[in-house]
Amino acid sequence: MFEPIIVADVGGTNARFALVSAFDKSTKQITFDNIQKFSSLDFESFADVLAAYVRTLTVVPKKACFAVAGPRKQDTVFLTNLGWQFNVSDIKARFGFEQFKVINDFAAFAEAAPYINNDENLVVKNGEANPHGNIAVIGPGTGFGAAALVKGEDSNVVLSCEAGHISLAACNELERNLINALSDEFEHVSVEHVFSGQGIENLYRAMAKVHNVDAKDIDAPTITSLALANDDTICVKTLTQFCDWIGAVAGDLSLTFNATGGVYIGGGILPRFQDKLLASEFSKRFVAKGKMQHIVEDIPVVLITQDNIPLLGAAASLDEN
């Protein structure tokens, strides 16, 4: 018999909670009840916002798993953007959880990957996923996250990493020039320096410099809006480059993780300009891997547009059925 699970997705802006009342791994069917969203800024601590959700329940489950946007060091979890921290053992004792797990939000994304329905999301690149192959998840958002679900004979393991901080590679003359321009601002030009919200602004300034144009003092939403409206040449070039270049990065990570089971892209940025992404050279750049092209050609890439992935991943991480 399935025991209900409290799951949560706790970020710098909002904390979303839900009650998982059913989870059938064989059919990949999951039932969420009592979904609640709280503004994190309205609470002084993680324990306070969790208590607010618990008050909405008639019975408090004995199992809980939370996906958080922050690191864990031994028993302590840090939510950097909120200035919160809590001890896992303290929360477990205070709320009477028999099982309590806290995982990184991209680890939750990786855990959720086998249960994602591609029909509910956007297929960016077609391919034939190996059902026994590793799955990579990446995402440009506030930063750049990545993880992998590594398939084993008896069980799966989530591999977290810091791929956002690897060196960004140039594949053509324009990109070499852009990296040179970015190097004037950053000692080390990383993937995150381009593929994040702040990264769009960095890329825009570099693109303006490469084209000998004075950059305007505009933020990422404005750059995106002007590009989609075709109202600014440098903004258009910036967004086009963003979509093309992330294809190369995604292809690199697919080889790094041996992700023959597929690549899923999350984060809050790319869903805002899906048509631009589909019209870009993303797929061409993804497969341009020399001797390994025959491997990456078969890897499907899906952009996640549904919004329950961290909750699904938290449930998958804890459920043992």
Score class of each variant (00 low, 15 high):
192 E>S: 02
98 E>F: 00
140 P>Y: 06
93 A>E: 12
52 A>T: 03
114 P>A: 02
275 D>K: 12
85 Q>V: 04
92 K>W: 06
188 H>G: 12
54 V>W: 01
129 A>G: 03
23 F>N: 04
276 K>S: 15
176 R>H: 11
64 A>G: 01
82 L>F: 05
210 V>T: 13
270 L>G: 08
26 S>H: 12
202 N>T: 03
60 V>I: 10
56 T>A: 14
207 M>Q: 10
26 S>I: 12
88 V>W: 04
101 K>N: 02
135 I>N: 09
123 V>M: 06
128 E>R: 15
97 F>D: 01
136 A>G: 05
173 E>C: 11
222 T>N: 08
36 Q>N: 15
60 V>S: 08
204 Y>L: 07
283 S>E: 08
253 L>W: 05
299 I>S: 06
188 H>I: 15
113 A>H: 00
234 I>F: 14
176 R>F: 13
130 N>F: 09
208 A>E: 12
286 F>T: 09
128 E>M: 04
285 R>I: 07
220 A>C: 10
57 L>W: 05
77 V>A: 14
90 D>L: 12
317 S>M: 06
243 C>W: 11
180 N>S: 05
163 A>L: 09
86 F>C: 11
87 N>Q: 15
39 S>C: 08
127 G>M: 03
261 G>H: 13
208 A>Q: 11
203 L>Y: 09
97 F>Y: 05
223 I>Y: 04
225 S>Y: 13
107 A>K: 11
195 F>H: 11
226 L>V: 10
220 A>Y: 11
172 N>Q: 02
105 D>Y: 03
207 M>W: 05
152 G>D: 03
23 F>G: 02
26 S>K: 11
153 E>N: 14
136 A>C: 05
313 G>R: 00
158 V>S: 05
208 A>S: 09
126 N>Q: 14
136 A>N: 02
17 F>G: 01
48 D>T: 04
290 G>Q: 04
177 N>D: 14
262 G>W: 07
164 G>L: 08
172 N>A: 04
132 H>A: 13
310 P>R: 00
290 G>T: 06
264 Y>A: 08
104 N>G: 07
260 T>M: 03
191 V>I: 08
38 F>E: 12
200 I>H: 14
240 T>N: 15
1 M>F: 01
46 F>W: 07
169 A>W: 12
311 L>V: 00
254 S>Q: 09
103 I>K: 02
242 F>S: 12
29 Q>L: 03
130 N>G: 08
